[in-house]
Design a protein around this nucleic acid. Structure first.
Lengths: 151, 151
DNA sequence: ATCGATGCAAAAGTTTTGCATATAC
DNA sequence: GTATATGCAAAACTTTTGCATCGAT
């Protein structure tokens, strides 16, 4: 799923956001954002992100608590979003992609993304019908992916 | 959302299932099933269920481990189903209702159910398009419910 | 009488918090 | 220099497991 913004732009926005809230720009925060941005088809647990950074940047000091704190921060800023995938717990993904939903393979744990206009429209109608002020929505189709079926 | 089966029938099926797997019918297992059946608009965490039974049937011995074990059992038997609601962790609901989706209120945590033919149909089409063998699907609309908006 | 189920407590995971130190500004 | 961020370790939760005992069959 395409990302509209270049990383530099995303980073600039993040810096501005930090500044506006009197928060500080740190190497740890940047790396966490970068990992999620650069693996934008990925869906990571906090621990995944922790390990990725530990491996790729062994010289940087990093604690798991910082990962949790930063992910919360990034989620509140709508830069990343989290979803609970039943089996494997909460995962984070880059949140500035075009809106999309997920196909989750129960065998390999793989995740594919899709976007469907009809469903989007229908969701709005349903929210309206229930007098519900919709802020977001999630759709997941679980099953067996094409690759796993022929495996 | 209506349940087709009377409790007696559900219970009978459960007993048969237990028998067929050489498992035993116990008071604890029955109570857990009963709580979920009788609160069929409810969505419970394992701890909710544990507390409900502790309060309603203080004479019955029950450990939280049994609740987890029984919920797993019931889920495998497709009698209950679980969903991860982002904020509040994994919740269980009675699984023999007609299929439906959820509206989740982010303020009060309340959950409403709905069913929409168009969305169901569209999901099948999407799975087909991705050559995905769909086993289940989940849709959640998050937002603020009618009651909370006027609160 | 047998074999599975249970409660309990310990263990394993996951996420959060407190605090002294480090670092951005 | 000051205020926020960090790492670490402890704490708080959540879920699972081992084991002696209990209870359904």
């Amino acid at each position: 799923m395409a990302i509209d913004k270049a990383y530099e732009e995303v980073l600039e926005d993040f810096k501005k956001l930090l500044k506006s809230s009197n928060l500080k720009y740190t190497k740890q925060r940047e790396l966490i954002l970068e990992i999620i941005y650069n693996n934008n088809d990925g869906h990571f647990t906090p621990e995944d992100i922790y390990n990725l950074i530990k491996n790729s940047y062994p010289e940087v000091k990093l604690g798991i608590a910082t990962v949790y704190r930063t992910l919360t921060l990034l989620e509140e800023a709508n830069i990343v979003s989290s979803i609970s995938f039943g089996v494997q717990g909460k995962k984070y993904e880059f949140g500035l992609k075009e809106h999309h939903d997920h196909l989750v393979c129960l065998e390999c744990g793989g995740i594919e993304e899709f976007f469907d206009e009809t469903i989007e429209k229908q969701q709005e109608d349903i929210a309206k019908k229930f007098n519900f002020k919709m802020t977001s929505h999630i759709m997941k189709i679980m099953g067996v992916c094409s690759a796993c079926q022929s495996r």
